[in-house]
Amino acid sequence: MEGSNDLDAVRTNLQDGIVSSSVQVAALSRSFGEIKAVDEISFEVGEAEIFGFLGPNGAGKTTTISMLCTLLRPTSGRATIGGYEIVDDPEGVRREIGIVFQDSTVDERLTARENLVFHGELFGMARNDIRPRAEQLLDRVGLLGRADDAVITFSGGMRRRLEVARGLMHWPSVLFLDEPTVGLDPQTRRSIWAYARSLRDTEGVTIFLTTHYMDEAEACDRVAIMDHGKIVAIDTPERLKARLGGDLVSLSGPDNEALAREVRDSFEIDPRFENNAVEFNIERGGDFIPILLNRIQGEVRSVGIRPPTLEDVFVSMTGHQIREAEASEEDKLRSMHQRGFGRRGG
């Protein structure tokens, strides 16, 4: 079977550090008319890993998640979750996964506990398991005290926590979080993350999330950077940043051109012009700056140094910034298509 060969090929490319994988994706694609929202992506996610999809709106993250959650049929390619293939056995996949959607899907007229119990019954959990499990999860997300209040009285952060708890009710092996902290204040975002981590540790669940926040991507075990429907890089945040070759040094003066020339000639570094400054990456930038300033003749008015961020990785991989990408016309169209067709029953 051709499809399983694809998966075998991916398996041999296993990233080191992954013991066994819970999500395997091989050449998965989805087109909306002419637009390739997701273009032949392949990757694996390990068990109990926190895996992040980083990219601008319209990069294809939600489309990918929709396909993996069996809500959207792929145009081509294969993917398995917990051993179940998304097209061949959507029901098997649905039992293996928990989903927290970008928009709230709790019933605000029911209480927190009722939302969980309803979910447990819908997923065919044993009657004896449902109430203890709901109790346990409400406790873990810090909502036990409000368990019997109608959800309509909950704040945005509490609702999101409730959704995380609900997503875990039926002991899924993978929890999908689509932009889990959009619209939440920084403190609530941090608390959601703390809960997600502790749940990963106690439940042993794989967490698969999409985000366009850099700090959120930094907190993942591994990150796939997505742009225009393709995965442009996939690795741990540390290694992705290490690819840039050290700290980011920026230098500016009255004549940036001359400064760049000097840097090039004296240190065999090829600097870039960015934000009205001369920029380059170098290992241990702090040690380098005194040497640099000693050697350079031209006038320097300011020197900046900072460790590289995933934003820098994104820029170097794609040639543009995340915010710029969000404004581009084709992507607007792409996300329009997502909103229009991003859901499918099955």
Binding site: F118, E121, L122, F123, G124, S173, T202, E203, G204, V205
Partner: peptide, 24 residues
């Protein structure tokens, strides 16, 4: 293997699904 708390979930029967939707 993954967590001692995990248990297999079955599959809700037709009537169970009808019941829970009805109840809500």
């Amino acid at each position: 293997e993954i967590g001692s708390t995990r248990r297999s979930t079955g599959r809700a029967s037709f009537l169970q699904v009808v019941r829970v939707i009805w109840l809500r």
